[in-house]
Amino acid sequence: MTKDANTATQETLGGILEARDWSRMGEAWHEDVVDHDPAPGQAPGLAGIVDFWEEFTTAFPDVTLEADPLVVTDDFITAVFTIHGTHTGPFQGHEPTGRSFTVRGIQVSKFVDGKIAERWGSTDQKGIEEQLQLGSSDVRFVSEG
């Protein structure tokens, strides 16, 4: 595929995440996507990605992702991003705190036939724990859009 095709898919994914239209996630992700950094208990493939985002946006309904920079090749997109959210719903065993967080993260997506086939990512989990005052826990999540 080309940089332009991958960028178009990334933009589609951003629109899906913004609209919270989980039924469209297959437009951006392969059904059998390999997530190299899944959240605890996350199912494999597209179903796991969808389940994660449903839980995450229920826990943090105002979540936003701002990518800067975005590095695009014919096979990969690397996004460095800032993520903001307010903890108003249960998340990974933690009751809502009402507190907000702002942290940075990175995601690398490998594209095959215009869809994400593999992902690697890391977000400042410790920063989220501290800002939400969750204490020492195993808060882990995929990040991206």
Score class of each variant (00 low, 15 high):
residue 3 K to G: 01
residue 3 K to E: 09
residue 4 D to R: 06
residue 4 D to K: 13
residue 4 D to S: 14
residue 5 A to W: 02
residue 5 A to N: 00
residue 5 A to C: 00
residue 6 N to R: 07
residue 6 N to M: 02
residue 7 T to Y: 10
residue 7 T to F: 15
residue 7 T to D: 15
residue 8 A to T: 06
residue 8 A to L: 12
residue 8 A to Y: 00
residue 9 T to F: 01
residue 9 T to I: 03
residue 9 T to H: 02
residue 9 T to P: 01
residue 9 T to A: 10
residue 10 Q to D: 08
residue 10 Q to M: 14
residue 10 Q to S: 11
residue 10 Q to Y: 13
residue 11 E to R: 15
residue 11 E to H: 13
residue 11 E to M: 10
residue 11 E to L: 15
residue 11 E to D: 12
residue 11 E to Y: 13
residue 12 T to V: 06
residue 12 T to M: 11
residue 12 T to I: 06
residue 12 T to A: 07
residue 12 T to P: 05
residue 14 G to A: 07
residue 14 G to E: 02
residue 14 G to L: 06
residue 14 G to P: 00
residue 14 G to K: 08
residue 15 G to N: 08
residue 15 G to F: 05
residue 15 G to W: 02
residue 16 I to G: 04
residue 16 I to C: 00
residue 16 I to L: 03
residue 16 I to Y: 01
residue 16 I to Q: 06
residue 17 L to A: 10
residue 17 L to I: 13
residue 17 L to S: 12
residue 17 L to H: 07
residue 18 E to V: 07
residue 18 E to L: 04
residue 18 E to W: 05
residue 19 A to F: 12
residue 19 A to C: 01
residue 19 A to M: 05
residue 19 A to L: 04
residue 20 R to M: 13
residue 21 D to W: 10
residue 21 D to H: 12
residue 21 D to Y: 05
residue 21 D to A: 15
residue 22 W to R: 11
residue 22 W to N: 04
residue 22 W to I: 09
residue 22 W to S: 01
residue 22 W to G: 04
residue 22 W to Q: 09
residue 22 W to V: 01
residue 22 W to M: 10
residue 23 S to I: 08
residue 23 S to G: 14
residue 23 S to W: 14
residue 23 S to H: 15
residue 23 S to K: 15
residue 24 R to V: 01
residue 24 R to E: 00
residue 25 M to Q: 05
residue 25 M to V: 02
residue 26 G to C: 09
residue 26 G to I: 03
residue 26 G to E: 09
residue 27 E to A: 10
residue 27 E to C: 01
residue 27 E to S: 08
residue 28 A to Y: 03
residue 29 W to V: 04
residue 29 W to S: 05
residue 30 H to M: 08
residue 30 H to Y: 07
residue 30 H to V: 07
residue 31 E to S: 11
residue 31 E to N: 08
residue 31 E to I: 05
residue 32 D to H: 11
residue 32 D to Q: 02
residue 32 D to R: 03
residue 32 D to Y: 01
residue 33 V to K: 06
residue 33 V to S: 05
residue 33 V to C: 02
residue 34 V to P: 04
residue 34 V to S: 11
residue 34 V to Y: 06
residue 34 V to W: 10
residue 34 V to F: 12
residue 34 V to C: 09
residue 34 V to D: 09
residue 34 V to T: 15
residue 35 D to V: 14
residue 35 D to I: 14
residue 35 D to T: 11
residue 35 D to G: 07
residue 35 D to K: 07
